[in-house]
Computed example of a mutant assay.
Amino acid sequence: MKNIDELFWNATVEEIKRGYIYDNSAEEYICLICGEKFIKGIIYPYNNYFCDAEKAVKNHIKEKHGSTFNYLINMNKKYTGLTDTQKEILKYFYEGLSDKEIVKAQGGGSSSTVRSHRFKLKEKEKQAKVFLAIMGLLNSSKKERNQKGQEFINIHKGATMVDERYAITEKEREKILKNYFKNGKLSNLPRKEKRKIIVFQYIIKQFDSNKKYTEKEVNHILKKIYDDYVTIRRYLIEYGFMERSDDCSQYWVKL
């Protein structure tokens, strides 16, 4: 099974919109936000009634994540391409507020300004559709299919910075992992940023994305991988692979 980042970035636009995918081979519905799974054929309890797996994943998204819209709109600007003002306006649109109500909620401005934002966002939507069509044609072309191993790795959704450090191909990742890991142990911590990211991507897969860990549990897992587990733990937080509570009592995979 692919990890949650791979599932998310390989999902269709429609699947991302609804917040989950259906895995035919495993016969289960998977939340694209956190990776929680719901098995087809199992009946799940919800409040005072029971529901099937697909309804259960929908309820899960609503209860745990608020909504798919809420999750997507709050993703890193590098992924959404939206300014803070545009995100705020979109939230108002999603809530169904009229232009006048939005002006009031913002504490000033004019309806014409809101209409201008609406127009620009519609233009952005058109551009996105054309770009998706272009990339779809590119990905299906014979030349592109022949570039096996040259595909870029998926960026983890919690990445704090998205730049050229993530321009890593599948071949590069395989080579680096082979050079730095022996029997699951990290030989040494690489200095180059690209290599660090690949190493941390491998390490974070040792954690369950649906579980919260104590610091002792995190240390126990990291000790098996690298002696200086404190440094690794710090980097996982710094690079956006993991989050922790303010009192450091709990750690979890950043989604």
Rank of each mutant, 00 (worst) to 15 (best):
R191P: 01
P45I: 05
E125T: 06
F50D: 15
G66Q: 10
D23G: 03
V114C: 05
H60Y: 03
E14K: 07
F200L: 15
Y229W: 09
G41F: 03
K192C: 04
L222F: 01
R173W: 03
V13I: 13
P190W: 02
Y79E: 08
F38Y: 11
I33W: 01
T80P: 04
L82F: 12
R18Y: 02
N24K: 13
D99G: 00
N188C: 10
R195T: 10
S98M: 00
H60W: 05
E123Y: 09
I176M: 01
E151K: 14
A167S: 11
T231K: 14
E27R: 13
I153V: 09
Y79L: 15
G184Q: 11
I176L: 05
I73V: 12
Q106E: 05
F207N: 07
K100V: 02
I204G: 00
N76H: 10
C51Q: 13
H220R: 12
I73L: 09
Q127D: 14
N24A: 13
T12F: 08
E54W: 06
E123C: 02
T12W: 00
Q250C: 02
V130R: 05
N146K: 09
K17C: 05
P45K: 11
K77E: 14
K175R: 12
K224H: 05
V199M: 11
E95Q: 08
E144R: 10
G35Y: 10
I89K: 00
A56F: 08
E243C: 09
Q201S: 01
L222I: 04
T113M: 07
V103D: 08
Q150T: 03
R195G: 00
T113G: 12
K171L: 13
N179W: 01
E28T: 12
R115E: 15
D247P: 08
S110F: 08
H117V: 04
N24I: 07
F241K: 02
F8Y: 14
G108F: 01
L177V: 02
K224M: 10
R118E: 13
K211W: 09
K129F: 12
N76A: 05
K216Q: 10
S141L: 09
V13T: 13
V114G: 04
L121E: 03
D208C: 08
E193K: 15
E170V: 12
L132Q: 14
Y49K: 12
I168M: 03
E14G: 12
N74K: 13
K254G: 05
K205H: 00
N47R: 15
I134Y: 13
L186S: 05
I204N: 04
G109K: 03
L186Q: 07
E28W: 00
Y166D: 09
W252A: 03
F50S: 15
I16F: 02
A11W: 04
F152N: 14
F200C: 01
Q147L: 15
G108K: 10
F241T: 04
K216Y: 13
D163C: 03
N139E: 14
E217L: 12
